[in-house]
Design a protein around this nucleic acid. Structure first.
Length: 310
RNA sequence: CGCGGGAUAGAGCAGCCAGGUAGCUCGUCAGGCUCAUAACCUGAAGGUCAACGGUUCAAAUCCGUUUCCCGCAA
């Protein structure tokens, strides 16, 4: 079975790696073009490209797939049976979806039809979901709306943040991908249409979204802290400087005669801050121009006192 | 070479310009005092001054190179 893999980030990389490890016949990889990125605008090579080249497999890096006849011809030449698409970053147009004999399949880290879009893991945490999962779908032309082939749920641990949850979902995704390929091999694929009325969206995150509104509840803020790792992070400002909250905990506050955003208590455990509902304990922080540190160290150095208003 | 900030004890910083014993505030630990402590008193631990090279009798400090970290931007 000739597989062409589409992907661009480390989530995709883990799946490609497991295809190699599983002995599958990956004949080519499609990934995003190398782009200048980060400080100094260094050229960043997609991890997919490196992995593919290490396995001596062709790498295609089209800027766009839309009306790109060259790419269609190139893909066709590999005589693909399936496309595996994992966080590729672009929609595949109809004429490309039609190329592989069995179709194009996508591993998506949410329980579709919930959380269609670019940041499903983050949004599940932001919304305080207690479970999530991985869904394998057969791609059609709309975003994450194809028929479901495999789906498996898993609980979200209250301690999970977007980084740890992502790792768990990579494992689950690999498992589901393996089963999907086996089902295709065995001719045992069963498709289930998504219930479009239950669809929700998980759009790309923005920097602005990470800004904390102290007039929201402690639970909401805590979920932002968990869900916005490692970027953009839930943040506020301290002396005009960006102040990211890395870890936190919701503390039931019994007597909130304080304004939201007010520091209630400083202790070794961290900084206790009033919110609109209950209080939140800030446990570790990351101030602009400094290394991340636990909240206690921060309060000692900055002489933060109860009564301070964020 | 996209723009800018930074690295000195666990944290926050001073010292650098003008070279001469590694300092301050806080935290930590131990002891004391106290009905009591985020108070007070006494003491202790904790450093490759990011790294390498140069200048010098002498470098945290002056000169050069490198590494790492942070914000913006994408």
């Amino acid at each position: 079975m000739n597989i062409i893999f589409f992907g661009s980030d480390d989530f995709a990389e883990a799946h490609l790696k497991s295809l190699f490890d599983g002995g599958h016949k990956v004949v080519a990889c499609v990934t995003q073009p190398d782009r200048p990125k980060d400080r100094g605008l260094k050229m960043v090579v997609s991890p997919i490209k490196e992995l593919a080249l290490a396995h001596h497999i062709a790498v295609l890096q089209p800027a766009s797939l839309k009306e790109n006849k060259e790419i269609i011809a190139e893909l066709k030449a590999f005589k693909p049976d399936v496309f595996i698409v994992v966080s590729y970053g672009q929609l595949l147009p109809k004429e490309i979806l039609e190329l592989p004999y069995f179709g194009a399949f996508n591993v998506h880290p949410s329980l579709l039809p919930k959380y269609r879009g670019a940041a499903p893991i983050n949004w599940a945490l932001i919304n305080g979901e207690t479970q999530t999962g991985v869904t394998v779908i057969r791609l059609n032309i709309s975003l994450d709306a194809g028929d479901i082939i495999k789906q498996k749920a898993m609980p979200i641990d209250p301690e999970d943040n977007a980084v740890t949850l992502r790792e768990k979902l990579i494992d689950l995704g690999n498992e589901q991908l393996k089963e999907t390929l086996k089902a295709i091999d065995d001719g045992m694929v069963r498709l289930t249409t998504q219930d479009a009325t239950k669809a929700t969206k998980a759009p790309k995150l923005t920097k602005e979204f990470g800004k904390i509104d102290w007039n929201s509840s402690a639970v909401d803020i805590h979920n932002k802290v968990r869900g916005l790792q490692p970027w953009p992070c839930a943040y506020t400002y301290y002396q005009e400087k960006l102040f990211k909250i890395l870890t936190s905990e919701v503390i039931p506050a019994l007597n909130p005669n304080h304004k939201p955003g007010e520091v209630l208590e400083i202790s070794k455990n961290g900084i206790l801050v009033q919110t609109a509902k209950e209080a939140i304990l800030i446990k570790s922080v990351h101030l602009e121009n400094a290394n991340p540190m636990d909240a206690h160290s921060f309060t000692v150095g900055h002489k933060l006192q109860p009564g301070f208003q964020f």
